[in-house]
Design a protein around this nucleic acid. Structure first.
Lengths: 238, 238
DNA sequence: TAAAGTAAAAATTTATAAATTTTACGAATT
DNA sequence: AATTCGTAAAATTTATAAATTTTTACTTTA
């Protein structure tokens, strides 16, 4: 009874629709639900143990985010991938995050710099892969990676812009999940992050922006290489 | 039978959820559904003559666009307005559309320039107000105004960025609808558009960007003046 | 015999109606 | 005055029905 009472006050009463939205999104971003796949209500109801309505609501939200495509009267599909989209997303991310980073730097405060330092420290400590031999995605590292990049632009002073950057990060994450990451060995991502941090702490915005863009473009290059070597299921969407 | 055959190949009929989504969005952007208002299913079902499911789906889409706020277990509300949001939206629009306009100009082709010229021509011809005495919003002018601004950034080569700009335009449109537009008389918007067009055709990107930003900031200033003079219902959102 | 076209059936998506759960509000009691 | 209890309203979810699309099978024709 005590446990119940405690829980009642503590837990936030998220609706089923919201929790399914989050699970579906996670499964799409991790590519467990592969690009182009048809999302049949029957299948989803079984998989997520839920009714049609909450599923439908979740799918409608994801449609607006362009992670799911809804064809009228014809159901829902995981958004297909394409090299074209990868290029546009990467280019756009470089543009807007450069903008946001410059603003963040212009508004720079000790608190912001310190938070960035901490975010980097945490990222540095987390292992990139759960398995030291073979690459195995570490959710904690992914989370901290996102947090570091979010902190970089977090001081720009525009919530709409931050939201847009998050959306771009989401949509690009899917491509990273798809790539089998031979990059794991050959690329020293940790050093790239350290270099960006240094440039920021030096207040060298031109250098910071240059490094950030290079960071994103290199990632895209590795993904492109992976995607072209493997058989890509991707349909050529508009 | 011919008609059927033609239809089959063409688009499938829009779903109720989509048509309600569009109507709801239009009503929110035109402020017929005022900021902060509670959107009760009962009321909406009556108003839009529809069932719960399509309404719920429409509301969920609008939630992702930040035009509707969904409080868990507590229903939906039209997103409140605030001077803070107005400022952030305007600032952000200046930033990203400047970016997009520069790219458009860098990719400039005769076809693009000509399309812009035509868009401007059409805008110039449409009357700003349906009533020459008192201001009365002309939907056709609004449409052409949007088209002109869309054309400006349309050549930037990034669909995600264009989509983001459209969203910003939507969210700002609501503020314009709210403002009672005494600006109608004192401001010569047509001249501002003409100046922007001229700068673009002259390939003077610095000037074009300067004028575009000024255009948006002036609009925001007029809205601010209106909003501060009138009793603002706006709740102070986060 | 094969191909094409049509019609019926099956599957799936969309919409409505009913049921359940949760929250808000007010009266009664301590 | 504060708290608890109960009732009413509202939101969420499940279940059912209607409409649409896709598949399958069959007939007709070349």
């Amino acid at each position: 009874m005590d446990a119940d009472a405690l829980n009642r006050g503590a837990e936030s009463p998220a609706t089923l629709a919201t929790s399914i939205y989050e699970r579906l999104k996670a499964d799409i971003l991790s590519a467990r639900l592969e690009p182009g796949r048809k999302l049949q209500l029957r299948f989803l109801m079984e998989q997520y143990e839920a009714g049609q309505t909450p599923l439908r609501e979740a799918l409608n939200r994801l449609t607006t985010e362009d992670l799911v495509i809804g064809k009228e009267q014809r159901g829902f599909f995981v958004k297909p991938i394409s090299l074209g989209e990868l290029g546009e997303l990467t280019k756009t991310r470089c543009w807007v995050e450069s903008l946001a980073l410059r603003e963040s730097l212009a508004n720079s405060t000790p608190a912001w710099e310190e938070a960035l330092l901490v975010a980097h420290h945490r990222l540095e400590r987390a292992p990139r892969s759960l398995n030291p031999e073979r690459f195995e995605s570490n959710p904690e590292w992914e989370r901290l990676h996102r947090a570091f990049h979010a902190q970089l632009i977090g001081g720009c002073g525009s919530r709409p812009l931050i939201g847009f950057c998050e959306q771009l990060a989401d949509r690009l994450h899917r491509y990273r999940s798809l790539s089998s990451r031979k990059a794991f060995r050959v690329r020293n991502v940790a050093q790239e992050h350290a270099d960006i941090l240094k440039a920021v702490l030096d207040r060298n915005s031109d250098e910071a922006v240059r490094l950030l863009q290079q960071h994103y473009e290199q990632t895209a290059d590795f993904i492109r290489a992976d995607l072209e070597s493997e058989p890509p299921d991707a349909a050529a969407s508009t």
